[in-house]
């Protein structure tokens, strides 16, 4: 307990004067860190290895948010649990930023949504950060709000934003050249996490292990997938690290398909410590699986 108190005191002294940011996910925390630089201190709620749809509302999260100046939400109903954490923090000065506010949304339902469609998001697919263009939009949103609450360091935020945007633009060119062979690749995904990533890099989701979002696969559905893989000669099955490998392993036994674990968030896998590395890791992993 004494160590804990000392740690908190040291943390408070070191972090004094900085803008304290709490982010729902590691992706938003990393982008905020890059944009905020030395003037911000960031922490995340969901761990990178955790499914961001299901995060238990822990009272200790409320204490983290109680001390924060800004909360970064993914929005689009992905991190609905954040509202309870924010309420429980009773933080009067907290600025809540919905990072999806400048995103062009994909898969927005055009008809009434109900549970027969699985765990569908009524405001569209919320995994938008996996498109690097959207990473830039997130960075712009964060910079704009940082400048509002800390105008004294606006120049620094603008400079950091510029560096971040240029680094992404350079990588987009580099990725396009290095991973051009992935264009048109058909992939079986576990969950529908990747439409923004697919759109940017020219990939196609052939089918999903989940028959509908959040619904576990049935034997009939697995049999359908096996027939599809054999019929279309699909070679890659990609899954998030937190899903059970049981159904993918069963499919591999029947078809010989390559299973890869992609990182849906920063820190989900080793080598994904930053937003830029996250995108690179996923492309590299797919390329290795495609050309083993």
């Amino acid at each position: 307990m004494i160590t804990r108190i000392l740690y908190i005191i040291v943390f408070a002294v070191v972090g004094y004067g900085k803008i304290n940011i709490v982010a729902s996910t590691t992706d938003l925390a990393d982008i905020a860190n890059q944009v905020g630089g030395k003037y911000v201190s960031t922490i995340n709620i969901a761990r990178g290895s955790q499914d961001p749809h299901y995060v238990e509302v822990l009272p200790s999260f409320m204490i983290k948010v109680k001390r924060a100046d800004m909360y970064l939400m993914v929005g689009m109903e992905l991190d609905q649990w954040a509202e309870q954490i924010i309420d429980g923090s009773r933080n009067r000065k907290l600025k809540i930023v919905d990072c999806s506010e400048n995103i062009a949304r994909l898969e927005v339902p055009t008809r009434k949504v109900d549970a027969s469609m699985g765990d569908i998001h009524p405001n569209g697919n919320p995994h938008y950060w996996l498109d690097p263009e959207n990473g830039k939009a997130i960075a712009r949103t964060i910079a704009q709000h940082l400048k509002e609450i800390d105008p004294n360091h606006s120049e620094s935020y603008d400079l950091n934003l510029d560096i971040f945007l240029k680094s992404i633009d350079q990588l987009i060119e580099q990725w396009a050249a290095e991973y051009d062979d992935l264009q048109g690749l058909n992939i079986i995904y576990y969950h529908n996490t990747w439409p923004y990533f697919d759109r940017h890099f020219g990939l196609t989701a052939a089918a999903f292990i989940e028959p509908k979002p959040g619904i576990m696969p049935t034997p009939t559905h697995l049999d359908h997938l096996i027939q599809l893989i054999k019929g279309q000669h699909i070679t890659v099955l990609a899954m998030e690290p937190y899903f059970s490998p049981k159904a993918p392993e069963f499919i591999r036994e029947k078809t010989g398909i390559n299973i890869v674990k992609l990182a849906q968030s920063v820190d989900a896998r080793e080598g994904t410590e930053t937003y830029q590395k996250l995108i690179s890791y996923n492309l590299e992993t797919l390329q290795k699986a495609y050309k083993p």
């Binding site: 109680k66 924010i86 309420d87 429980g88 009773r90 933080n91 009067r92």
Partner: peptide, 12 residues
């Protein structure tokens, strides 16, 4: 009715 945001002294 729960007032959870905006009250002083960490109150709800």
């Amino acid at each position: 009715l729960s007032i959870e945001r905006g009250l002083p002294l960490g109150m709800a």
